[in-house]
Design a protein around this nucleic acid. Structure first.
Lengths: 306, 306
DNA sequence: TAAAAATACTCCATAGGTATTTTAT
DNA sequence: ATAAAATACCTATGGAGTATTTTTA
């Protein structure tokens, strides 16, 4: 009626052994059991697979063709079963969404660390703003996201990784004109440049500077952090620079000056998010641990530098 | 414990439907039946394949990987089952052995006829002398052979196809010196050129000429019929030319002359041979019928020509 | 509360085993 | 006569069904 893997397994053994009895032995079943399954397979395929002779069997043309398919199918399934054992972490590709103000600064180190770690998982990165990657995560198009917490969405599980503090960034001239001690909410919003709408960093910066104080005057809607950095370097205003991005941005904008805020320093919480599910997922914890280690190390470096 | 095609089928349906109940419906089983098989598959693979959410499911990375394999495996098996229906004649490649004194003369027409016929079978030709192809047939390395009957071996089934009569061939000078009516056994053996040992044609020619009359004097052990033809054309003696080869050989050796023997003309019986097996083999009869038709047509032509 | 999946339990189909017959050399 | 595969028959595993519970949104 229907072809089964068992039938294909028995048939492969029969073709290899050339004899029903020996084939049955290698399959650890009785000879009639194997005979019946071969007959069943022949009935399904509508033709003989082997010529039965007194001392041996010979494959028919159909049998040879079926044998090839059987080989392919069985090896595919065997690979599946085998991968179940040898799998550390998980099989397959983990689709990871990362927001643009994190991706270029965290991923180089993070991917290197993942590659080196025991959890051998392939990662496929999707870069997108918070809402977009969270939508994809919810739909099932992504497996996890790295972004600023909290997400404030239902059905998601958040795991904090590290704190990314904000530094004040400006041109040398502007920064020298500043007083020594700066409190974030003392910044006049008119001085602050922000990324274009949609970047969570924009909202966070507004929150840090105390939105309530007056109407924000966003001079430029820069589309990326490097662009924003260049504008600030050129003296068009100040901005809040995440520590995470500091080293890279300084390398590209030598005229930029950074200054730490007084304690308590404002920060964004970087976290890993996945769909909430009751069943434990091996890879999530391991991935988060690795990212946490990498992220904290980067923060250490940043604190030594500024 | 072991992966089954049923599990893969159910899993594929689940991935497509995104929901256990609908997947179960498309498989025409109850929801618990499908649930259990999915759990079984997950147990075999040692990891979750789907995340269970309230209104839908999402594949895990492992699930996506398994789904790809499942697609490949199921489509291979489906192709097998499907080919069982659409198969005319047989599937696969028929390995056909043919002796050298038949192959080049019969095969061009025969293969064309097979290609045109409804029995769509791929044929792979092995050319070799009688003993060699029969050994391969017995071993199972060939499925059938075209050669001169009888084979006089056990375990083989012979099917006569057509009679290939022998013509007397010689140079123009020699043939003009011959009397009008020739009886085969009247030929002096010393005039006759034969192929080298191993060709059945050699034995047949000796039998035709009445071996008992005296010691055969084989002037040349030619390795192929075309070679033999050239020697004869050059006047080195006479030979027996199978009607089957006559047309081709005449084209290559314009100086050659052919003469029919008086009735009863000597001939070799061309037949198709396979391993004897009690189970009926669809292709054998169909193949034999086609070959018989082609062979008889060639014989008709030959008789009109000489 | 409603919808979906998991669990519990029962039943039956079928794969497998033993004993035997049939077939081919 | 012997060796191998097919057949007959019985048993037991496990896949599927119904009813129910659990879970999550």
């Amino acid at each position: 009626m229907t072809i089964t893997l068992k039938q294909l397994t028995y048939f492969k053994a029969l073709a290899e052994q050339g004899n029903f009895r020996r084939a049955a032995e290698t399959c650890f079943v009785s000879q009639p059991a194997l005979s019946v399954q071969i007959q069943e397979l022949e009935r399904s395929l509508g033709g003989a697979l082997v010529e039965r002779h007194a001392r041996r069997i010979v494959l028919t043309p159909l049998g040879r063709e079926v044998l090839e398919t059987a080989h392919r199918v069985l090896s595919e399934v065997a690979a599946l079963e085998h991968s179940a054992q040898n799998r550390q972490g998980l099989g397959g590709v983990l689709r990871l969404g990362v927001i643009p103000t994190i991706a270029p600064y965290l991923l180089p180190d993070a991917l290197a660390a993942l590659r080196a770690s025991d959890i051998s998982l392939d990662v496929q990165i999707t870069e997108g703003k918070t809402d977009r990657v969270l939508d994809q995560l919810t739909e099932g198009a992504l497996d996890a996201c790295i972004l600023a917490l909290p997400t404030e969405r239902d059905g998601l599980e958040e795991r904090p990784l590290f704190e990314d503090r904000f530094l004040l960034a400006g041109s040398a001239a502007r920064m020298e004109a500043m007083e020594t001690h700066i409190r974030p909410d003392a910044l006049s919003e008119r001085q602050i440049l922000l990324l274009e709408d949609g970047h969570c960093l924009t909202d966070q910066a507004l929150a840090v500077c105390g939105r309530g104080r007056g109407h924000p005057r966003i001079h430029m809607g820069a589309s990326s952090l490097p662009t924003l950095t260049r504008l600030v370097e050129a003296g068009f205003g100040l901005t809040l620079m995440p520590e995470l991005a500091a080293r890279s941005e300084m390398a590209l904008a030598p005229g930029l000056r950074l200054r730490r805020f007084d304690d308590p320093e404002p920060f964004r919480a970087i976290g890993l998010v996945r769909r909430a599910t009751r069943q434990p997922t091996e890879w999530f914890g391991a991935l988060a641990d690795t990212l946490e280690t990498v992220g904290c190390a980067l923060m250490e470096d940043a604190r030594r530098a500024v």
